[in-house]
Design a binder for these strands. Structure first.
Length: 288
DNA sequence: AAGCGTAGCAACCGCGTCGGA
DNA sequence: GTCCGACGCGGTTGCTACGCT
């Protein structure tokens, strides 16, 4: 089935957001909450399409967004999660509170893929390359052809407006969400966004719940412990074997990853065929 | 100093999926 | 069961900053 563009381009602003637009969007969402992106621009007095508003909010204006450099721990976790999940940026971002999928995707494309290549690892397969590739980036040549004639002063002004606000680099503080009890396996939320599942400041729409997953274990009351950062991986099969970290103080990112990996590959030493089936099943669970 | 090439990242685009009518 | 609006995701593009020659 054909699909119409998300919005009419006629009369709508495009390109970098102005501080005024940011303010309008922020105030509207603070007053009315997220969601209803399609109708939001009009109600908020913005000449933007809903998609653009959503993107701006999700990737830049959200109050819980963590700005600043990716830490080595985060860096390492991204690489490892990518080896498990592939280019599922939203899932990876869901494990890095305060980071957005766009940010992680950009970071991967600009830093990590090159870093892995320089280390002799294929960034897409995470397997060793026969020859390390140091240089890449073919597309830039094309971009040069599109460069305009704007002078330095104009460029500086435009770039300043691009972000609309000064952002202090913050030292990221990685923390884990607490488990959430739900009563049914079938009702497990699948939520990419850690924040939307662990805070009450924003409304969680049904669409929000479609996106992610949670680590869960079944207790004797047939309840489930959900960890939004673990996306469907079973961590606790009984109360006695509860390996779920309760706070960031208890576990480092390394431990988090190890548990994640162990749960994922817990049958690693069993039959390959069975193991593959379980991995396939896990992969499917990510897609549900 | 000027031009060129690259890095970095915000924003856009198109498609897939979900859920209600 | 079908249609369609809305949303979310991943890939890609556009633009500025900056380093190198």
């Amino acid at each position: 089935m054909g699909r119409a563009p998300c919005c009419s381009k006629v009369g709508l602003h495009r390109g970098p957001w102005t501080p005024r637009e940011d303010t309008l969007l922020t105030k509207y969402i603070e007053a009315h909450g997220e969601g209803h992106w399609r109708s939001m621009p009009k109600k908020a007095g913005l000449l933007r399409c809903g998609k653009s508003c959503r993107l701006r909010w999700m990737n830049y204006l959200r109050p819980d967004i963590k700005r600043g450099n990716i830490t080595p721990d985060e860096d390492d976790l991204i690489v490892r999660l990518h080896s498990l999940l592939g280019n599922r940026w939203s899932l990876i971002a869901g494990r890095l509170p305060g980071r957005t999928d766009n940010e992680i995707k950009n970071y991967w494309n600009t830093h990590l893929s090159k870093k892995l290549r320089s280390q002799g690892t294929d960034p897409s397969t995470h397997k060793k390359l026969s020859e390390p590739v140091v240089k890449e980036n073919k597309r830039r040549i094309k971009n040069q052809k599109t460069k305009n004639n704007m002078n330095k002063k104009e460029m500086a002004v435009k770039n300043k407006n691009k972000t609309g606000q000064h952002v202090e680099p913050l030292k990221p503080k990685v923390h884990l969400p607490k488990p959430t009890r739900v009563t049914s396996f079938l009702s497990l939320p699948r939520n990419d966004s850690f924040t939307s599942s662990t805070t009450s400041t924003t409304t969680t729409s049904s669409q929000d719940l479609k996106g992610g997953g949670g680590a869960f274990g079944v207790n004797e009351n047939d309840q489930v412990l959900v960890h939004p950062w673990a996306n469907g991986v079973v961590f606790c099969v009984s109360d006695d074997q509860d390996q779920v970290p309760n706070s960031a103080d208890d576990h480092t990112l390394e431990n988090l990853y190890e548990e994640y990996l162990q749960a994922l590959l817990k049958t690693d030493h069993h039959h390959d065929h069975q193991n593959q089936l379980e991995l396939d099943s896990f992969a499917e669970s990510l897609l549900i």
